[in-house]
Each structure stands twice: as structure tokens, then as C-alpha cells.
Design a protein around this nucleic acid. Structure first.
Lengths: 342, 342
DNA sequence: TTGTACGCGTTATCAC
DNA sequence: GTGATAACGCGTACAA
């Protein structure tokens, strides 16, 4: 593999001159430039970015660490990230932790060894270890999709609480009085916020019993399981709130198996929309998060840190994006309304 | 940022000894090891993988270049790739070319500069330029999901022709006699193979007119457009074959808009399944590709090249995986069958 | 078991 | 406008 020195020899110049031509840094006479360019073409020189990084201390690479690459919500974020990263001439490393803290730690360690310029992280749990590591090394970190207890990093997330509140208010306005919340693990802020927002909406209505809250994982299996438990409770809920898209899918599967009709027998609302590209016939009423935009904004925040515009001394920012209420069939008509005449 | 030398000084040893401790290469007395490990912990040393790569000429990084990150088929491949890559302690760079040759070239150039250990490529077009570049540099390349004209690289793909043939045979057996194929661009082997396979199935039946073939892009918009054109043809087809998942979704949207019922008025079959995770109620009859497995097999092929087991001199391999026919509602019942009594 | 010398490919600094 | 020198952080080859 030819090096810059070999190009230099062939062109009869020094290595640094070749470097100047390649990077367009510093003055080079047009004659020399031509000779160098020809030499490059002749021997097929490809600059070595590894060596360059060793000197420059920049890799022009950032990493995105998500909890679940199969979830379209995260792949949509990834898409937004990729677009933004590519625009600024960098490359993107993607890691999937499978919601496991240990994997998250392993990945962050590897990424820091590789000296990536920055990390976008969807923490599996609290993310404390990762945040600490990054800070020690001075590598910018943006936490995506999860609220942070302390202020330890920039954050980009959607307003889970407000979105859940809207869904709750919708169901209340449709006349539901017994509802259940199916959400994710304890201590995951996203899971808590959504439960809290929904409960608040119910509490705001007079004389409604607070919804029962089921805790599981953000998975289809867990959604299915929680739905079955919720429906066997007394009194049986007339509406279910699934705190993310996978839980919602699990719920729909469970109801289908139980021959419970949606929305006729039970209304269902969820968090996270499915990308329109993937859904043939949208059905589910949801609070949609702006996933693509979240990806882009995360990169923007990271790049701002990198360009030093906001040095490491600057206070951390939290960008909270609004969700959008999308009402579809699964939430049903007002309870007690007359049956439509056929 | 502390270096290996600083660790060495603090521990009162030489740099190479620290290296031996960190990489567990070469003998180190347990006393010295303890001293070194303590020094590492105290000053928070994080090995520099960039410098290591410069020496070792390996980056332990591979890249996946796809045409469309929003397509669940490719994200499923990516998921399989990620799992396999992670298992072998490497990291994964992901690039999305948006089906543009120029982007593909740009990405490949950047990746080769970064000295990635290998590249998995879903070519936007023929992929000739990328293949040539990689070969010149001696970087292993595996082409994914596309057949190659010449033998210039390892290939992992599904059997598009056989899958399309099965779909065609199904429709023929259901009694359809006028059908249309909605496929991707000319010169993309995948698009051609699927059209050819389907046509062959029709030709195998006696006295059927060959299906009309529409050419567009592998996008929802294109699918919608082609569906409208196909349905306004005379004689009007009773069945449509969409050559990938996005085209199929576009078709379903178009038919919905035109108030054409599926499968009552027109039967629809497609290529590529949607991951079960994303679909609430599966509806479409498809030839499903083993996307996840394709991702894994691609990595396996790449790693085989890397480990030298199959040196660069070895002949290129082509792995062709079978598709699976999944019959659902969209393909309908046999034509002319009595209406089901309610 | 431990250490010395050198090179990996590039670029910043300073000199001409 | 061009070049010599050194340094980035690490690991191989060899010596002690």
C-alpha cells in the first residue's frame, strides 16, 4: 500500500508537499501540484486516515449507541443521525446494547479507545457509568430519548409526560373510567414519565379512579403478557395505554388471541408511531415522537460541542421536543354513543 | 490524556511492559502486573486504538453500506450484521447511499482511507467502481442482496428468481390469467430476477399471456404510481406482484385510494416480508427473504477472508439463500370460487 | 522476566 | 513556494 513518501519520491518533492496537495492546505505551485496529482493517480495512493487521526487527534467519527436496533423508533433516529453525520463529512458507528448495561459499558469503553469524536447514547439504565467515562476522557456525549436525573450531559428527548397526558385526556374525553397503563421497567425515566403523565390526565378528571399501572419491559412479549393480566383484572379496563410501540404491538396480538375487539371491546392507545413507510394501514392512536428530528438535533448538539462553539465548560443543554397526538381507529368512538346505523 | 509512557513511568517500568499487561501478550510477573494495573487505574489510562491500528494495520472495524436505511429489510440485515460483528469484538460503521452511485463511491473512498478491515456492500447500481477500488487496496468486500454480473467479489443474496417463481405459481393456481409485475430499475439484477422468475411461472402455465412488467424504483411513491398505471391497462389485471416491500406498500396505498379492495377486486403479492415486530396484523402474501441470516452470513464470509483462512487468492463464493413463501390474505381465494356464506 | 531501538504514516513547526 | 525535523502512541524484533 503506497504511502505519502512514495508519492513524494515519484513526484520529486517532499512528503509535506504531497500532504499540502491532498489536503489543500498551504501554498503549492500549480506545476508541482500537477506532478503530485499525477504521481498519486499513477501509484494509486490512498491517504491513511489512521495516521492522520494519530496526529490530528480527531477521527471524524461519531457513535450511536441504542438499546434495540430492531425497534423502528431507534432506526428512525439512526436515520436522522446518519443524514446529519454524513452532511458534515463524518462517519457513524452503530452499536446495539439489547437493553443491557454491561453491553453498554463494553461498547463505550471500546468507543473511547477508538477515540471517536463524540457519542450519542440511549442509556439502557441510568447511564451513569458511561457518562462518567466520557467526561473523564473529555469526549462529548449526548443522551438521547431518556431524561437524566442529574445534569451530566446534553440531552435530546421528546416530552413523554405531555404526550402521555394528551393520550389520557383523549380517553377520558371519550368516556373511559377504568383504564390501565402498560409501561417499561422501574427507574427508566421514560417509562415513569409516561405513566405519570397519563395518570395526571386521569386525575384531572373528577371522580375517576387512578389507572392501574403494569410494569414490564419495552418488548412485544411483555406487552402481550401485561395485556392479559390487565384484562383479567376487576373491574376490567375499557382502555389500555401502551407506553411504547413494541408494547402496543404485543397488546394488539394478545387482544387478537383473546378475541377481544379493538376498539369495540377495548380502546388502545400507544406511544411511538410506526414509520408510515412500514405500515400498510395505520390503525393505532398514538403520541408520535419526532424520531428523525431527534437524531438530527442530537448530532447538532454534539457538533456544537466539537467545534468548541460551546466548550466543555458550557452548561449542559436539554432539548425537549413535543410529541404529536395522532388519533386513529384504535381509540374508538365515545363510549355510550349510539351505534352507527348501517 | 495519559499515554502508555506515563503509566510506565508511574509504575516504574517500561512502556512495553505496560503494553504486555494491557494486551495480555508476553510474560509479566504478578508483582509488576499489579503495579501496572494500579497505575492504570490511578491515572485513568485508556489505550489508544488509533495508534495501535497504525502499527497493527488492523482497525477491527467493518462497514456496511446499504442503499436505504429506512427500509426494514436493510435494517434487519444490519441487525444481523451488528450481532455477528459484535460477537467477534469488532465495531460496525453504517452508511446509507440513498440508491445513489455517487454517494456509494464517496463512502467507499472514505472507508478505504479509514482502513476498515472489510466492507459489506449493497450496490446502488452495478457496484463496479467500488469493487475495483476495494480490490486495488486489498480490502475484502462482500456484496449483499445483489447478484453480480462478473465474479469480482463474494456474494450473499436470496434466491430472487425462485421466490418470484413461487409467487407466480401461486397466483396462477388461484386462477389468475392477467397479471402485472411492478419492479425496480432496469439493470438492477434483483429487479430483473424477480420479474423473470415471475414471468417464468406464468409461462409455465398453458395459454396465459405473459404479465406486463412495469419498471420504477424500489420506493413507495413508485409503487403507488405503477399500481395506478397497471390498473388502468386493458385488460385490467386481476393480480399484482410487487417486487419489494416498499413497492407493495405503495400498491396498497394506491388501491386504497382508488377504492379497489384487496384481495376481493385485485390480489396482491410482494417480495420481502416486514419484520413481525412491526406489523400488527400481517396481511400481505410474500416471498420472505432471510434478512437477518443474510447479514450474519455476510460477516462470516468477510471474517473468513480476514483470518486468511481463505486468502485473497481463493475463488469468490456466492451464497444463495432460499426465500420462504408466506401466504396471507392479500393473495385471496381461488378465482371463481363460491362466495363464502355468511 | 524486562528493556531498547525503531518504525507505522502523517502533519505542525520552523527554516530556507 | 518548498523542505527538514520531530512528534503523535503504540508494538515488533531483538537484546539483556
Amino acid at each position: 500500500m503506497p504511502t505519502i513518501v512514495e508519492v513524494a519520491n515519484r513526484a520529486g518533492v517532499s512528503a509535506i508537499t504531497v500532504s499540502r496537495v491532498v489536503n489543500d492546505s498551504g501554498p503549492v505551485s500549480s506545476q508541482v501540484r500537477a506532478r503530485v496529482e499525477q504521481a498519486i493517480a499513477e501509484i494509486g495512493y490512498v491517504p491513511n486516515a489512521v495516521a492522520r487521526s494519530l496526529r490530528s487527534k480527531r477521527t471524524d467519527t461519531i457513535a450511536l449507541v441504542v438499546t434495540d436496533m430492531t425497534n423502528p423508533f431507534f432506526t428512525t433516529i439512526a436515520h436522522g443521525v446518519e443524514a446529519a453525520v454524513s452532511d458534515s463529512g463524518m462517519m457513524l458507528i452503530i452499536c446495539s446494547t439489547d437493553e443491557r448495561d454491561a453491553e453498554e459499558e463494553r461498547y463505550v469503553r471500546m468507543l473511547l479507545q477508538r477515540r471517536v469524536d463524540g457519542i450519542l447514547l440511549v442509556p439502557a439504565g441510568g447511564g451513569a457509568a458511561a457518562i462518567k467515562r466520557c467526561r473523564e476522557q473529555g469526549t462529548p456525549l449526548v443522551v438521547v430519548d431518556r431524561r437524566l436525573r442529574g445534569r451530566g450531559a446534553d440531552v435530546v428527548r421528546a416530552d413523554s409526560k405531555a404526550g402521555a397526558f394528551e393520550l389520557g385526556r383523549l380517553l377520558v374525553s371519550l368516556g373511559h373510567r377504568t383504564m390501565a397503563v402498560l409501561t417499561g421497567p422501574i427507574a427508566v425515566p421514560t417509562a415513569d414519565d409516561r405513566a405519570a403523565g397519563f395518570r395526571q390526565a386521569v386525575a384531572a378528571a373528577a371522580r375517576l379512579r387512578p389507572p392501574r399501572v403494569y410494569r414490564g419491559a419495552f418488548t412485544i412479549e411483555s406487552g402481550r403478557d401485561m395485556a392479559k393480566r390487565a384484562l383479567s383484572a376487576t373491574p376490567r379496563p375499557t382502555a389500555l395505554f401502551a407506553a411504547n410501540n413494541f408494547i402496543a404491538i404485543g397488546v394488539l396480538h394478545a387482544l387478537d388471541e383473546m378475541k377481544v375487539r379493538v376498539p369495540e371491546d377495548v380502546a388502545v392507545v400507544g406511544f411511538d408511531d410506526l414509520p408510515p413507510a412500514m405500515v400498510t394501514f395505520p390503525f393505532l392512536t398514538v403520541a408520535a415522537q419526532p424520531a428523525y428530528e431527534m437524531g438530527q438535533r442530537s448530532v447538532a448538539l454534539l457538533l456544537a460541542r466539537l467545534s468548541g462553539g460551546r466548550g466543555p465548560g458550557q452548561p449542559y443543554q436539554e432539548v425537549v421536543l413535543p410529541t404529536q397526538l395522532v388519533v386513529r381507529r384504535s381509540s374508538g368512538d365515545p363510549l355510550g354513543a349510539p351505534e352507527p346505523s348501517i
